[in-house]
Amino acid sequence: MKPAWRNASFLIGISITTIIVVTALVSLVWTPYPPTKIDIVHKLAAPSWQHWLGTDPFGRDVGSMIMAGARSSLSVALIAVLVGAGIGIPLGAFASAVGGWVDSAVMRLTDLAFAFPALLTAVMITALAGPGAGNAMLAIGIFNIPVFARVTRGATLAVRELDFVMAARATGRGEFSIMARHVLPNISAVLLVQVTIQFALAIIADAGLAYVGLGTQPPFPSWGRMLNDAQTYIFKAPLLAVFPGLAITSAVLGLNLLGDGLRDLLDPRLSSRR
């Protein structure tokens, strides 16, 4: 195994991800300006020493808004992935341990879930249940459930045929106990990689929902909402449309690279670069 510090994807990915997580955490205690502070005199200011990324049509500091936006984006994505993994992984493990018609039924259900364009249904759920960060987390989380169920089932099926599982079975352990003690720990690498992928997708979905006004609600800043606001001023202040998008793209890029790196490091058999 190559050491972690020799894997470029992992290094770049973990660096970007760390920067974004730290930014989100720092925004809890400090931002250059209060992110919701309106200052009409200095509206639509170009980037300067006072306002590094300029100000928006209300004179709010774009840099501060992006810092606070990282917090809302990461928290929505985190909860969405926790919901998906928290229900999907046990569901997939259960289906594979029990087998038979239960397994088929769970798999048909995931097939059915994949038939619904995820973002469209998330739009429907958040719009009808009420826009906001909480419903966005749930709506995105629901579509993570079948993904985690599928991946878990597929990975456990392979591991369950291995000798050490046979040995555990021979000692008289029950299927569920074997699943928890022997099988799941062995597929943690696969699951961890999946978590980074879903995290990245959740950030895009959250930004999409916020863009159409269904995610985190104003005045609390969100990257998607900032893009929507920026579009109105696209002729006057084109830069406003650039920074929030860069933030989303770097967060997603960082997580994707981290996922690729983890895959290479943890499970060379799954490596995409041969």
Binding site: A200, I204, A207, G208, Y211, L227, A230, Q231, I234, P238, A241, V242, P244, G245, I248, T249, S250, V252, L253, N256
Partner: peptide, 14 residues
């Protein structure tokens, strides 16, 4: 892969 399509849309408009 990391580009959200709606941001790409806004960039293309720009």
């Amino acid at each position: 892969v990391a580009l959200p399509n709606f941001w790409l849309g806004i960039l293309l408009i720009l």
